[in-house]
């Protein structure tokens, strides 16, 4: 029974989730837009996007739906502000990057315990692999790329950049959030 209730609340999308999905998307959009100047040395057209931690963290803190909307809509907003147009398969990939860490949202206790951080990091990594994999492989269908090129030119640079940003910043942001939760008592 307890398990059923916990499963139900994981996919809940109430008022709180509506607000945090919107805040997460707006934050991701603003951060991604603002850090477009940070380019990876020797890599073409791939920027360091520390903002990727936002969908991962919002997923972990508020559940998979919030994580997905944060990634999907945040990437869409960032592309629109940068004038890049609309790339639905990359938006979907970013959404998945937020959805997967959200699958362990119910298992978070203090957000600073080693178990919480490790679980979040593992799921963030799974999210990056699946999300960037889906986006990169979609290029085979849309752009006519072959599998090897999609992996080499799209997946690997995006995976490395997002994994470094996510794995470094996610624990920092989780510990900061634990202080907020403790202080506010929410």
């Amino acid at each position: 029974m307890a398990k059923k209730e916990s499963k139900k609340s994981l996919w809940k999308f109430g008022t709180r989730e509506v607000v945090f999905a919107a805040i997460g998307a707006a934050l991701y959009g603003v951060f991604a837009w603002a850090t477009n100047v940070l380019q990876i040395p020797a890599a073409a057209n791939v920027s360091i996007r520390p903002g990727v931690v936002i969908p991962m963290f919002f997923g972990v803190a508020f559940g998979p739906i919030v994580g997905f909307i944060t990634g999907f809509l945040g990437n869409l907003l960032s592309d629109w502000f940068s004038g890049y147009g609309f790339w639905p398969w990359w938006d979907l990939g970013n959404g998945l990057m937020g959805l997967f860490p959200g699958l362990v949202a119910n298992q978070m206790t203090t957000f600073r315990a080693a178990k919480d951080i490790i679980l979040a990091e593992v799921m963030a990594l799974v999210g990056i692999v699946v999300g960037m994999g889906v986006a990169a492989i979609s290029e085979m269908w849309v752009s006519g790329m072959n599998f090897i090129t999609a992996i080499a030119a799209n997946f690997i640079p995006a995976f490395i950049s997002n994994a470094i940003n996510g794995l470094i910043l996610l624990p920092i942001i989780m510990v900061a959030y634990s202080a907020i939760v403790k202080r506010s008592g929410r």
Binding site: F13, G14, E17, V18, V19, A21, A22, I23, A25, A26, L27, G29, V30, I69, L73, G74, L77
Partner: peptide, 16 residues
């Protein structure tokens, strides 16, 4: 709810 979330995100941008 989802549509409102999309709408709200655009409204939060200037504040954030």
């Amino acid at each position: 709810r989802l549509a409102y979330s999309f709408d709200l995100a655009f409204r939060f941008i200037p504040t954030l």
